[in-house]
Amino acid sequence: MEWFAGIGRHSLGKLAAIGRALFVLTGALVAKPSLKHVPLTIKQIYVVGVQSLAIIIVSGAFIGMVLALQAYTVLVDYGAEESLGPMVALSLLRELGPVVTALLFAGRAGSALTAEIGLMKATEQLTSLEMMAVDPLRRIIAPRLWAGIISMPLLALIFSAIGILGGQAVGVDWLGVDAGSYWSVMQAAVDFDDDVMNGVIKSVVFAFVVTWIAVFKGYDSIPTSEGISQATTQTVVYASLAVLGLDFILTALMFGTH
């Protein structure tokens, strides 16, 4: 009997957590937009977006370079090294750009968001805001959520562009693929709507999920030092798993039929 009770307690706990997560989301997003919160959002875009630029640019460059190097060794056997351009561009635009950006973003910005909000809760700043009749969901959570949703697609675009340039550095300048065919075969293979825009859509979905998990885990954390450390870990783990799972579903929907 105790065993069934355990399962029941666990499921009810999960359901309640989903309910609280939806409550946080609606509380933060469903509201009359107010100009007062725009500067707060810009400040958060600086924190989660601009400060993540360095890691995004460096990883983008290296991933593009490694892709070109690995693809070249296989393609050159078939005399198809002209296909290096589409190989690098399509992998980056469709998969690696959105996914790796989301994983890095979860680690770099998501964990910081959770820790920040968790500490605000632990030091009772959120409660003080409520005492002053300021809704912490609107004042603290909403700007961070919007900043994440705006920043991540921009970061993913930068990631892909830098990666393609990195691929060119290795493929063209080092391995000697013809520069003209690197770009022209790429242009023939990459479609703006199908490849670039689908990558952006993926990235928007990931941004939404990762930032939502991050702010919710912070808002819902147990207000102790142990609770905050646990919430930060959970943010990175859950966000990464959600991104990888969603990526499969989105890829199947977008590119699965052809």
Partner: peptide
């Protein structure tokens, strides 16, 4: 906040430049 705004502006411009590059140089028109 002025410096923050400038840096965010640069970030957005960089992202738009990437999009323009992807649209013009990478994808076929």
């Amino acid at each position: 906040s002025r410096k923050v705004e400038i840096l965010v502006g640069l970030f957005v411009v960089l992202a738009l430049a990437s999009l323009a590059m992807l649209a013009m140089k990478v994808a076929n028109q």
